[in-house]
Design a protein around this nucleic acid. Sequence first.
DNA 1: TTACAAGTTGAAGTCAACTTCAAGTCAAGT
DNA 2: ACTTGACTTGAAGTTGACTTCAACTTGTAA
Lengths: 158, 158
Amino acid sequence: METSRDLLTVGDVAERSGFAASALRYYEHYGLIEATRTSGGQRRYRRAVLRRLAFISAARHVGLTLDEIKEAFGRLPEGRTPTKTDWNRLSKAWRSRLDDEIAALENLRDGLDSCIGCGCLSLGHCRIANPGDAAARRGPGARYLAASLRPRTEDGSA
Amino acid sequence: METSRDLLTVGDVAERSGFAASALRYYEHYGLIEATRTSGGQRRYRRAVLRRLAFISAARHVGLTLDEIKEAFGRLPEGRTPTKTDWNRLSKAWRSRLDDEIAALENLRDGLDSCIGCGCLSLGHCRIANPGDAAARRGPGARYLAASLRPRTEDGSA
DNA sequence: TTACAAGTTGAAGTCAACTTCAAGTCAAGT
DNA sequence: ACTTGACTTGAAGTTGACTTCAACTTGTAA
């Protein structure tokens, strides 16, 4: 494809980004990316979308939710196309996030070692069974990550 | 509660384990725990269920799915109540799992550092945007963890 | 004995992040 | 002009791990 001058079709973007076309539609609907339309109604993407998608991909791998990514995008400058520096500012925030997650996992691992040593695994005492203190529960639905690894909410919801 | 001689009600178990009563029902239905019944049909749990639940809690924190936990339980000795040693044998497997996850995150973090340095974030090159090689996609549904962090399947499904 | 907290059920809802579907429409090479 | 692969839509389905609901029934403290 990509015969057109400057714009990419969904197929192009899907192939280059690794995201499924359906995911691209979903992201557009979600407000994470945008596209212009041909007279016939088909999507045409600017190349800049690839960088945005790279960011999304990276952020997802770091464990951010789409909401958080959207929020991060909101901090990009409006009007002008984001520069390298803009992207870097955003991604720097991941650094501490990753550090936190790594620390949590290491803590878990070390606790596990002591458990293996002591053979405890008793509720209320085992560091593995009870990481942190309480409030590991937040709303219904699946829990994807250990409480200490899940994205934290600032608001005191539920 | 806990007026009965030796058995625990769902309420008791919920309070002591930290799991919601509905989760306990779910686990029972799933085949992870069991309970006897009173003549009236109410559940009564043996104390041993608490250790089992501690294991479930710990395993969930390490990122195991309920299926994997069930499979792990299948390796416990039948007939006799599992000993400390039995539990320890099971939990030792987490050790390498945790090590793997930590390594994956550290890899991600280091890649992020180099990205910040080079300002790349370009698809096809950025280590963060493209951890591993391909096949990050496995079936429909939510992706909870980075590909490198998700439980691996031995079978070559989808 | 009686009140009422705690327990029971199966079905349906939830959440995130997508995918799949059916039934078409578009666009580009020949 | 025609063919055919790529694209369009909204609605519904998927996954895992639960929660919530409505409408009862039990068990126990007073």
